[in-house]
């Protein structure tokens, strides 16, 4: 933890060297997901509901997914840009240091500009709440926190998978976009609107639905089973296979050195 906070302060100092550029990029990040929001907005000018979800409910869903994605991107950026860490030899440096690789990769990049996106998610979140009529209680606040935590862990896990695959190939990884950018983009709507099949995949294989659809149902009182509230924590188990894959990747790296 001490090492990580040291990394944190170094990144913070570095960013402060370029204040203007940092500020502008952060503003850029704030505006960048706006087109997605406008897409939703315009769609709901035409349609009242989709699969029984109203505009404000969709907004709530989108903002929570966006927020957890931005958190994961902010702290797990090292994994997201891992191909460059491998290709510029930075990973060799990591290997000759007596610390866990995961910690060092996490420390290699902290993207403070993502604060912009987090803020945007926050604005939409507040807007969504003010438009919806969720009856708030302690359980629901906890649910929201679980959703964000679970989502952040889940997205970090996916970034780790991406990084682990970089050990084997760096050119064929575009398909991982489905799970990173794609999950962020398509996570804007509750997963049930994509049909049963997609919902099953997102429940049992890549547990997006556990951090999004089921707890959302609990949040808007469409399903009062309290189990739904804890499902985002179950989704965190996903990180284990990701970690295993990462270990396999390192083993491969040690035998090929590429």
């Amino acid at each position: 933890m001490r090492v990580y906070s040291r990394y944190f302060s170094i990144h913070f100092k570095s960013v402060m060297q370029y204040k203007t550029s940092f500020l502008l990029t952060t503003i850029g990040q704030f505006l960048v997901s706006f087109n997605v929001f406008l897409g939703i907005y315009f769609m709901f000018m035409r349609f009242n509901k989709v699969e029984g979800f109203t505009y404000s409910e969709v907004l709530l869903c989108f903002s929570i997914v966006l927020m957890s994605y931005s958190f994961a991107e902010c702290f797990g950026r090292g994994f997201d840009t891992f191909s460059s860490i491998i290709s510029n030899g930075e990973f060799d440096r990591i290997m000759v240091r007596p610390r866990g690789e995961i910690l060092q990769v996490l420390g290699s990049k902290i993207e403070f500009t993502r604060i912009g996106r987090i803020l945007q998610a926050l604005v939409m979140f507040i807007y969504g709440i003010s438009q919806s009529n969720v009856s708030w209680n302690f359980d629901k606040i906890l649910t929201i926190i679980f959703m964000i935590v679970g989502g952040t862990v889940l997205f970090t896990g996916i970034f780790i998978i991406y990084a682990a695959l970089c050990f084997f190939t760096i050119e064929g990884l575009e398909f991982m976009n489905i799970f990173t950018d794609g999950a962020r983009e398509y996570g804007k709507y509750p997963i049930s609107i994509y049909g049963k099949r997609v919902l099953q995949i997102c429940t049992f294989i890549v547990p997006f639905a556990l951090i999004q659809y089921y707890p959302l149902l609990f949040l808007i009182d469409r399903n009062r089973n309290r189990w739904n509230m804890f499902l985002p924590l179950v989704a965190c188990i996903f990180i284990i296979p990701c970690y295993k894959l990462w270990k396999i990747g390192i083993k491969h790296y040690k035998s090929t050195g590429s």
Binding site: Y7, I10, K13, Y18, R97
Partner: peptide, 14 residues
């Protein structure tokens, strides 16, 4: 982007 001494301190912790 940071003074060398900061890097040294990070290495100390690592």
């Amino acid at each position: 982007d940071v003074p060398v001494i900061d890097s040294f301190e990070l290495l100390r912790d690592i």
